[in-house]
């Protein structure tokens, strides 16, 4: 039976087993490979997407459970990289291998959507489920703060220099 969801603003139907995790629906049925597979058990956060604005681990989410829900993936954050977080990530040259970063960005985006001025502790708590094997945590935290300044009207480089 087909399952329908709103994916990055568009209605999408897939005809797959109910228990297929959303991660594999995205990657292999819909050919959207931005969402990453790291552990498959909810430990690493590489597969983070939004369900109705909340960050979820798509590797543990049976596709049937998102029927009728709004799903946003990294491809839907801003395809041109125009989201403040994406700009901040580029300004601060955050990634190393980059493999975790889609998940990091999605967790950070969900945080900023509900907390427009997070403290270090807020960021650490919101990002606790996202591992970075390359150890880019210090830059990720800085980039979230930078994105906040950009959302308040500074250009990326101004906001960066004001730090």
């Amino acid at each position: 039976m087909a399952i329908t969801m709103t994916l990055n603003g568009k209605a999408v139907s897939v005809d797959v087993p109910q228990n297929m995790p959303l991660l594999w629906v995205l990657r292999d049925e819909l050919e959207m490979c931005g969402t990453k597979f790291g552990c498959g058990i909810g430990q690493c956060g590489a597969c983070t997407v939004h369900q109705d604005g909340q960050p979820i681990r798509s590797c543990l989410t049976p596709v049937a459970s998102v029927a009728g829900k709004k799903i946003t993936t990294i491809e839907g954050l801003s395809p041109e990289g125009a989201h403040a977080l994406q700009k901040a990530w580029m300004e601060l040259d955050v990634p190393q291998c980059g493999y975790c970063q889609a998940g990091q960005l999605m967790s950070a985006a969900a945080l900023l959507a509900k907390n427009s001025n997070p403290t270090d502790a807020d960021i650490e708590n919101a990002m606790d489920g996202n591992l970075c094997r390359c150890g880019t945590y210090i830059r990720i935290k800085k980039a979230v703060h930078l994105a906040v300044r950009m959302l308040n009207g500074s250009s990326p480089s101004e906001a960066n220099n004001n730090e």
Partner: peptide, 14 residues
């Protein structure tokens, strides 16, 4: 590859 990384382009081996 930085823009590709932050927009989720399929650039990895997987």
């Amino acid at each position: 590859d930085l823009p590709a990384m932050v927009t989720g382009k399929p650039i990895y081996s997987i």
